[in-house]
Amino acid sequence: MSTISPILEVAGLTKHFPILRGLLSRTVGHVQAVDGVSFTLQAGETLCIVGESGCGKSTVGRCILRLIEPSAGTVKLDGVDITGLDENGMRPYRQRMQIVFQDPYASLNPRLRAGEIVGEPLENFGLAHGAERRDKVARLLERVGLRAEAMDRFPFEFSGGQRQRLGLARALAPSPRVIVADEPVSALDVSVQAQVLNLMIDLQEEFGVAYLFISHDLGVVEHIADRIAVMYLGQIVELADKTALFETPLHPYTEALLAAAPIADPGARRERLILEGDVPSPINPPAGCRFHTRCPYAVARCRVDTPALREVAPRHWTACHLREPGAAPGPLKRPG
């Protein structure tokens, strides 16, 4: 897979939101929402970004689509850096990259009919006109499990799951190669979540689209991911294939995250790593490793040096001083 050039290459992506104060809107600091995030996405694969709320995972998605402007870093789509493009230059690339939002209510314009919503990208990119567009919209609606007649209805006439299907149909309309799915099922009931996830998997097989799937729910991630990137305080701390990450997590934060996920077996017992304290403020992130304030294994070096994301095992990257490339992925020792 790595021999093929990736469809999406993100390098050093950074987003610092300025904090403005006072009469003259002086910048008194920055919220370091995303800090030096790099990864690649291959055609047709699903890369999940997981992390707790506020870790910057949604900001990554929005920066890639240039819905917010990244402060630094590059985003290459099919080898072309799109971060410097103006709105007109950006338009052809927008066709190849679409987004599905978390909130199935706020993401559909309440005043437009379903057909207009799904047909809008077709209209904008000049992909289909008149009766042809209607046909195409009808096919898309049927493909996501809605009836073609639904195109004349307004968003409020649909349920949450149906609305998310509409969102998917809109994202698929211009035949994109990448879909950023920003917590697409978090707002849905569990039973509906499964339906929408399975639909997304089917659509991926059919259209060969790659997903950048943003989620905080490890159960969902386990179901859909090929690879997983774990984010903490604006940085990727671990990036690996799904099975490797679930079976041998290398970063202490990943370990804690997996330990916190519930297991559907009341008899199950396991060694639990429970984190203490809160996530530090992204305005003044800790020096060194950002996780050192809560890491039970932290040593002196962690408070000073920022660990780089290194390939510690084949296709398994982590940003931790305690993991040397080639070393056995055994459990870490608590200092003292």
Partner: peptide, 10 residues
């Protein structure tokens, strides 16, 4: 989000 969606749809 629907305004972001419109921007993303070109």
């Amino acid at each position: 989000p629907y305004v972001d969606a419109a921007r993303a749809s070109g």
